[in-house]
Each structure stands twice: as structure tokens, then as C-alpha cells.
């Protein structure tokens, strides 16, 4: 029994990881057992998916725009401005699109989830659910998880779409890159697998956000102060997990979908 106590940080970390994994396990068990309340899923898709569109479109568009401009400034010095299109689109699909979408969703949706569930916890509403023979994981976590896994890939797709439109506008209309070159090169160097990679990352990030946020909410203690704390932690921890997870995902997905090769 000495080991865990001599490393309190490790111990807390393992406990935390265990709790999140346990919650995920319970949720997927319920999903596969068909305990899905579709009415609540739709409600959550509306809140998460539709509600996040503005944020995601603006993020995608301006990231695409600024990345195009900067790439152009660097590449045109080397007379390579026709490479701007594919560089931007591949970078958007493989990294920027999914990561930035996930960070925005973590800030917007993850925070809301942990605040809402946390408030329910400290005001005994979770206990009221249990007392009414309703499983809180089935009622609160399952719909959010399903809605997130549906919404995130679509939001990532939307982010990419608007990123590439913005990229085209900046490159072609503003910086005078040849329209045909831009489109032709972008089309040639961006593959279906890049889009698949973006969407897969979206699903993984959805899972990270929803279980971290719900775990924070369900373990909230100490009234309003506790709700504030778990909300902050949900955003910080899920954002960090997105950034760290993204590195490992990139390495793993690069084996499945090697870059460049057709």
C-alpha cells in the first residue's frame, strides 16, 4: 500500500483517469444496450450541433484566411505561390480544423455540460433522478455522448468547408493567386483520407470532451464554488487532452493514412 501514497499526484491522476474511463464504459454499455432517449439526443444535437455553428464557421474561416495569407507571404518569396492551396487544405483537414473545432466546442459545450450537470449535482437533482429510478448516466450522459459523436464530425466538416472557402477568397481575390492553379493543386493534393482523418479526429475529440465534462459535472461538490471549479477544470483538462491526444492521433493515423501517397 505504500506506492500510491508516496506519489499523491500519480494516484490522483490514476483515480481521475479511472473515473473518466469508468463513465465512458458505463455510457457505451448503455448505448449498446439501446438505452438511448432519442428525444434528449435531438435536444442535445440542437444545442451542441446547431448552437456551435457560428463559432465553428468563424473559427474555420479566419483560420483558413490567415493561414493562407501567411503561407502566401512565405511561399511567394520562393515563387511557389501555387502551392498555397494544397498546403492550406491539408493542414486544415489534418490538424487545424479538427483541433480548433474541438477547442471551441470544449469551451462552449464542455463548459455548459459540466456547469449544468454540476448544478444538478449540488442541488440534489441527480439524487432526485436516482430516487425516481432513473439512471443519471442514461438520462444525462448518454444523450450528450451520442449527440457529440454525431455533431462533432459535422462541425469539423463545416469548419473545413468554410476554411477552404476563405482560403480561396484570400488567395485568389486578395492575393491574386491563379484561380485554376489554386483549385487544381488543392484538388490534386487533398485526398478523401484527409477528410476521413479530420472526421475521425472529430469523433475522438467529441469523446474526450463529453466524458471529461460529464465526469467533472457528476463529481461536483461544494455548491456554487464547486460548479465554477468543475466548469473551469472541464475546459482546461479537455483542451489539454485535445492537444496532447492530437499528437498521438496524428502519429497513429499517419500509419493508417500515410501522408502524400495516393
Amino acid at each position: 500500500m505504500k506506492f500510491p501514497y508516496s506519489f499523491p499526484v500519480t494516484r490522483a491522476f490514476c483515480t481521475y483517469l479511472g473515473q473518466v474511463a469508468f463513465l465512458a464504459g458505463e455510457t457505451f454499455t448503455s448505448i449498446f444496450a439501446g438505452r438511448i432517449r432519442w428525444r434528449l439526443v435531438l435536444q442535445q444535437v440542437d444545442e451542441i450541433g446547431f448552437g456551435s455553428q457560428a463559432v465553428v464557421i468563424i473559427t474555420g474561416a479566419f483560420t483558413g484566411a490567415v493561414f493562407t495569407a501567411q503561407t502566401f507571404f512565405q511561399f511567394s518569396a520562393l515563387n511557389m505561390s501555387s502551392a498555397v492551396g494544397p498546403v492550406v487544405s491539408v493542414a486544415l483537414c489534418r490538424e487545424l480544423g479538427p483541433v480548433l473545432t474541438a477547442l471551441m466546442v470544449a469551451g462552449r459545450v464542455g463548459a455548459a455540460m459540466s456547469a449544468e450537470i454540476g448544478t444538478m449535482k449540488v442541488t440534489e437533482q441527480i439524487d432526485a433522478l436516482r430516487a425516481l429510478a432513473v439512471n443519471p448516466v442514461d438520462y444525462l450522459v448518454v444523450p450528450r455522448a451520442v449527440a457529440m459523436m454525431i455533431s462533432m464530425p459535422l462541425l469539423v466538416g463545416e469548419c473545413l468547408f468554410f476554411g477552404i472557402i476563405a482560403s480561396y477568397l484570400v488567395a485568389v481575390k486578395l492575393l491574386n493567386v491563379g484561380s485554376v492553379y489554386f483549385i487544381h493543386n488543392m484538388w490534386n493534393f487533398t485526398h478523401g483520407k484527409d477528410i476521413v482523418m479530420a472526421m475521425s479526429k472529430g469523433v475522438v475529440f467529441a469523446i474526450l470532451i463529453v466524458f471529461i465534462a460529464c465526469q467533472q459535472g457528476l463529481n461536483t461538490k461544494n455548491g456554487a464554488v464547486g460548479v465554477g471549479r468543475s466548469t473551469t477544470e472541464a475546459v482546461v483538462i479537455s483542451s489539454l487532452c485535445i492537444l496532447i491526444g492530437n499528437f498521438f492521433l496524428t502519429m497513429a493515423l499517419n500509419i493508417v493514412f500515410p501522408a502524400g501517397a495516393h
Binding site: 442541488t123 429510478a133 439512471n135
Partner: peptide, 21 residues
Amino acid sequence: RELEPVRRKIGMLFQDGALFD
């Protein structure tokens, strides 16, 4: 989950109500 049938037999009024807000 095994508690659910027991809980269906029992109603509880919480001290602060615990309504779903």
C-alpha cells in the same frame, strides 16, 4: 440498477424539493 425496482415502490420528498430546474 438493481435498486431501480425498489425505488419505484418508494416516493421521496427531498428537503429542498430537488425539482429539475
